[in-house]
Nucleic acid binder design. Sequence first.
DNA 1: TTGTATGCGTTATCAG
DNA 2: CTGATAACGCATACAA
Lengths: 350, 350
Amino acid sequence: MPRPAKDRGRTKMVDIARLAGVSVATVSRALADSPRVTAETRERVEAAVRQTGYAVNPLARGLRRQEARQILVLVPDIGNPFFSEVLLGIEEAAAALGFSMLVGNTAKDPAREDRHAVQLLTGAVDGMILLNGRLPPCLQRDRRHHGRIVAVSEAIPGGVLPVVGIDNAGAAAAAVAHLAGRGHRRIAHVAGPAANILTGQRLAGYRAGLRTAGLAEDPALIRSGDFTIPSGESAMAALLALADPPTAVFCSNDEMAIGTIRALRAAGRDAPRDMAVVGFDDIQFAGTYEPPLTTIRQPRRRMGAEAAALLGRRIAGEPGTGGDITLPFALIERRSSAGVLAPPPPLLSY
Amino acid sequence: MPRPAKDRGRTKMVDIARLAGVSVATVSRALADSPRVTAETRERVEAAVRQTGYAVNPLARGLRRQEARQILVLVPDIGNPFFSEVLLGIEEAAAALGFSMLVGNTAKDPAREDRHAVQLLTGAVDGMILLNGRLPPCLQRDRRHHGRIVAVSEAIPGGVLPVVGIDNAGAAAAAVAHLAGRGHRRIAHVAGPAANILTGQRLAGYRAGLRTAGLAEDPALIRSGDFTIPSGESAMAALLALADPPTAVFCSNDEMAIGTIRALRAAGRDAPRDMAVVGFDDIQFAGTYEPPLTTIRQPRRRMGAEAAALLGRRIAGEPGTGGDITLPFALIERRSSAGVLAPPPPLLSY
DNA sequence: TTGTATGCGTTATCAG
DNA sequence: CTGATAACGCATACAA
């Protein structure tokens, strides 16, 4: 007789059955709201459940039903406020659907990605949400589970998975249009890392925005950072060293925008007086920073919620759940880009 | 013949057994590193595992072993950077111990706390970490699982659970000593909500700090907020309206400290010029804010890691795991409290 | 050292 | 409408 004998005290279905004077099968049905059970029987079962505080063992149920009612979220850095707000949206929507949320921090390490991703292969989780911009290696080979994965914010290279996010190029173009509309003609861009898929989208939008405004692109005005404050500082330092520096800068995220402002101050200048600055994301402290940051707001929480809902539909096997979901962004005008550049330069471009 | 027939393609132990030409029991033992298995047999099993990419089904294993290798973290707000950094520490330490991390957002709602907490009662998770300062209602009645719960940062009323945190009173006293050491004699305190256990600890430390510095306590200099920026603003507005306003303020968290600085600016003053400001927590943007915030740094990530490690020991049933863990804090001196108040007022208190 | 058999707690099939 | 019972995939006591 095998005897794990660990937590033997826990109430189980047979206890409820005994208490209610019915069989376990009936208890199971009563708890599952099956129509094939008398109101009176159900009442007896429910009384026993209340009395004991019983709750179904999810492991046993999961083993039997071949589902875990859990989803896994892979995130490069839980501590990053951008991601944590998305997590919040995911958790709430998942909970509403009866799913628990597992969170795996990957730190962009493929080995850790894989260690977490096996949970999808083993059935420990029913689905997965990717916030880290790529598929774990083991899921690149094994495509059987692609139907249970969705990405948020960053599209996955290859484009086989649905993405929940915003129109990044459109948002970047809107940021540039905002600056051009205030008279700026030398608008710089602090881009993200080349490997990041968002970098390309926002850079494309920056270029489109310049074109729309009738401005020529100057390669010297495009710098790359890595989404951190220090990288924004170096980018701005380089821009200020230019013979003909920009009067405005659009940064691919808020941290780098804050970095550019710090670099301005270090050089004895300030925003928006000497440079209009626009960020991206509207992180928590964007509105609190000095100066408050003009930025593109991403509906992070809603993105998370929509992703969880979409994943729920995919897990349930609903058809037509393969498409992307594009949510609206908003340009939040704050002081960092305030003021109009005057006098506007003459329209003689060349 | 019942046939769930959902994901029937998944490799299981019998497949490995067949492939390796052994029994499932042997496979199980080989995978569990049992000493009772030939090196050669083990090699055959491992080859089959590699070939198929097999991984043990955690639901089945959990049902059999009566453990889930999962822990649940209850947090009032995942989006709050303070908590998300603790989560990061928990996740990493838990993963190292072979535990996955479930995150439940409670929004301080007892009903949601309970919905998540049942996972402990049902065995869906092996343990629980509380970041929200109190026990879910269902666990207040049912004390059987207290051995599998630890708190982080905030102690739980009643003091029955081990807490991982810092010496909040000592840290508050250090903050006051820092200000007193710079010549300030009218030092205000913006406290947290009365219900929060940290509020009392930090308030007590504030008072102790005043006593140590030989300063009298002025009730008019103690205001309450709710840990948000706006509440810090109102608190400072009230302090500035005093006939004899303070020259320094110690806030119970960084958000409220930022709020006080905003209120100063709104009144045409600034920190540290007109008021020295000290916060608490050293949140991500404390060092980036204008002015950079003097604050108490809590080792958030390490607190999370220690909590996970402690919980792991408790789950494993190791003895002597009932005590609190107090980690060192650090007073981070930045510009918001820079400068010395001169001339110091005469020593004639009355 | 390895294989056989049983049970972990549920759900679903089938018979009543 | 209800009850007995066979899986779900794995780990262990016991036999070989």
